[in-house]
């Protein structure tokens, strides 16, 4: 933690950044906070915490008000993957964001089944060990089509349409959301139309989902959303050789499809 504090203070004092978005202990609990030169005394309370808030999504909001400012941001590996996608989708500018990597505890890595808990530019802690746990996806894949359909009908049928999965998602940034499109999605009706509501979101996650799992964490009825999006993520990798958030310089498929560069085969 001392290394992180020193790094943040150094960046703020040198004027390299206008603010550093991280977690601050408020009472005994960590919440997002923007450390600036005016609030430098608060850096003492900075924490990496055992919880995850969508910091990259919060940064979009702040950067929209201060487009010329350079910000530092505390990054777990999942935050960094999201930020890479946000650069590509022009929601954040790579010359205006400095990522400061922090490690996740082994418990958190396990709970998240995180395949890549190792951010670049690691300042605080040691990089966690990777967890290759695809058991959730494999379990569904081993079902017959009928079982699979029943499974998802039951799971998605629990939905109370809180929009939490979309609201917390770091790569859900559209000004207009198709999930609120009145002719498509009836207001005041739960569960929403099955399975189109959730599959629409799943399709929109293709080429974007960075497998952070915040959606599943935010779901009040424990729908295994991440399993669904993981499958979509794997399809994108298989068909289009693209893993969102992993490759900084690779053009996302959504930007090249249609030019005949890719051919999707069965």
């Amino acid at each position: 933690m001392e290394a992180l504090k020193n790094k943040v203070n150094e960046l703020l004092e040198s004027g390299g950044i206008a603010g550093f978005l991280g977690l601050r202990n408020f009472g005994s609990e960590p919440f997002p906070f923007l450390f600036t030169r005016d609030t430098a005394a608060e850096v003492e309370k900075i924490t990496t915490g055992a919880v995850r808030y969508p910091l990259s999504k919060i940064l979009i909001r702040i950067a929209a008000v201060y487009p010329d400012a350079i910000f530092g941001i505390m990054c777990r590996a999942c935050d960094e993957r999201a930020i890479i996608e946000l650069f590509k989708n022009t929601k954040l500018r790579s010359d205006k964001v400095i990522t400061i990597g922090i490690s996740c505890t082994d418990d958190l890595v396990q709970a998240c089944k995180c395949e890549n808990p190792q951010p670049s530019n690691l300042v605080s802690g040691e990089a966690g060990k990777k967890e290759f746990d695809r058991s959730d996806v494999q379990k569904i894949a081993s079902m017959t089509l009928e079982q699979r359909f029943d499974f998802w009908t039951e799971q998605l049928g629990k939905c109370i349409k809180c929009y939490g999965c979309r609201n917390i998602c770091p790569v859900c940034f559209c000004d207009v959301c198709t999930l609120e499109d009145q002719p498509l999605v009836k207001r005041g009706e739960i569960p929403p139309e099955l399975p189109s509501f959730h599959l629409t979101r799943a399709y929109h996650m293709a080429g974007r989902c960075v497998d952070c799992g915040l959606c599943e964490e935010a779901c009040p009825v424990d729908i295994p959303l991440r399993t669904l999006y993981r499958r979509v993520r794997e399809s994108v990798k298989e068909l289009l050789d693209y893993l969102p958030g992993e490759e900084r310089d690779k053009v996302p498929p959504i930007q090249v499809l249609g030019d005949g560069l890719f051919e999707i085969r069965d």
Binding site: V51, C162, G164, A218, P220
Partner: peptide, 15 residues
């Protein structure tokens, strides 16, 4: 945002 550390809602909220 939903409070992540609170035992009542455990990081979830309704609409």
């Amino acid at each position: 945002l939903p409070g992540k550390t609170n035992p009542v809602n455990e990081g979830s909220l309704c609409i």
